[in-house]
């Protein structure tokens, strides 16, 4: 885990109908991290996402069917394993994550296997309200306890995975609702991986705010709880790399 500087980094951007943002985000990532590989996983978009990404200089893996972030990310992890990358950093293609923070996340990988870029931890102005916030809080408390470290933002889509995590996630990465955040974290923790968080600043989403209605928030609360419960009671899939558990 010592030589972080010499590691090959792959930036994975799961993208669904992001033709307006993906090009700019890819260019920004390539400027900030010229030595990292950039893979855009087009999650069955119906627009020009693939083309824009390719024009911006990224490698594009196009999923024929929409699989959700989980499916897109496992594709990324498999690509990383097949092409000899040690570190995978997930960055959203909508431009809410600042590529400037990637280096910071990767630097923390020498003490951890999975580093989360957290939105609430002091920096930035990201705020969630109402039931959605309670749900996030409950998730954060439970998963913090599991991880034996303070995690404030477990649903963040800005994460860096070290070699052990990459190997594990290439074999098993949940594709269900919230599987890419909550369940994958629980999976990593139960597999004996070390999880840490780094406070990062989030920029305003370029593509508009997520819609918030009380009913939708309540549904989110319920599904988040269910996802967490399932993640906790599910048998851990047998993964060779999880020998530490």
């Amino acid at each position: 885990m010592a030589e972080v500087a010499t590691r090959r980094i792959l930036i994975v951007l799961p993208a669904l109908n992001e033709e307006n943002n993906v090009g700019a985000v890819v260019r920004h990532v390539r400027e900030t991290l010229p030595d990292a590989g950039v893979l855009v996983v087009d999650d069955g978009s119906s627009d020009q996402t693939s083309r824009r990404a390719r024009e911006a200089g990224a490698t594009v893996a196009r999923l024929a069917v929409n699989l959700g972030v989980g499916g897109a990310m496992r594709t990324g992890f498999r690509y990383a394993v097949a092409n000899g990358y040690d570190v995978v950093v997930q960055v959203d293609a909508d431009g809410q994550h600042d590529p400037e923070h990637v280096r910071e996340l990767v630097d923390h990988l020498d003490q951890a296997d999975l580093v989360i870029g957290a939105r609430f931890a002091g920096k930035g102005a990201y705020r969630a309200t109402g039931p959605r916030r309670w749900a996030m809080w409950v998730l954060a408390v439970v998963i913090s306890r599991l991880a034996r470290t303070k995690l404030t933002d477990v649903t963040s889509g800005f994460k860096a995975a070290g070699p052990r995590a990459v190997k594990m996630f290439a074999q098993y990465y949940p594709a269900e609702y919230l599987g890419d955040t909550v369940e994958s974290l629980v999976l990593a923790i139960r597999g004996g991986l070390v999880v840490r968080q780094v406070p990062v600043e989030m920029r305003e989403r370029s593509g508009g705010q997520p819609s918030q209605t009380p009913i939708r928030a309540a549904v989110y609360l319920f599904r988040a709880g269910l996802a967490l419960l399932l993640a906790l009671v599910r048998r851990r899939p047998s993964v060779e790399s999880a020998d530490a558990a």
């Binding site: 893996a61 196009r62 999923l63 024929a64 069917v65 594709t75 690509y79 097949a82």
Partner: peptide, 20 residues
């Protein structure tokens, strides 16, 4: 669903490989 997912992912990676 799991089988379809795996197949779709493999196809995407193969297409990627083919392009390269």
């Amino acid at each position: 669903e799991e089988e379809t997912r795996t197949a779709v992912e493999e196809i995407a990676l193969l297409r990627c490989e083919l392009e390269r």
